[in-house]
Amino acid sequence: MTSFRLDGRPVPFVPGQTLGAALVAAGRTSWRTTRNEGRPRGIFCGIGVCFDCLLTVDGVPDQRACQVLATEDLEVGTQEGERRAP
């Protein structure tokens, strides 16, 4: 089965799914924490408007999981608080 990695662990996906869809299908509902209160966040609007579902894709932070198509061996990272050390 095709998969990408979230923080190094494989997440299976069906080609054509977004990262967000694949994560939800895998039972994962959150992959980011908020800046001020550290609250967990995942998909909310699902159509690219709310920016709740941000994660890091191949080292590029702040990508919307609901918009980026999953591809084989993509390295995806969760984002904590203020996203990352620059």
């Binding site: 069906v14 054509g16 799914q17 977004t18 967000g20 869809a21 694949a22 939800v24 299908a25 509902t29 959150s30 609250r39 967990p40 966040r41 995942g42 998909i43 909310f44 609007c45 699902g46 159509i47 709310c50 609901c66």
Partner: peptide, 22 residues
């Protein structure tokens, strides 16, 4: 704001676009 709460359209987008039942 808990994960697992979506907009109605978000549930639909997951289903229509990704074939995923949230």
């Amino acid at each position: 704001d808990l994960p697992g709460v979506y907009t109605a359209g978000g549930l639909q987008a997951l289903l229509k676009g990704g074939g995923v039942r949230a």
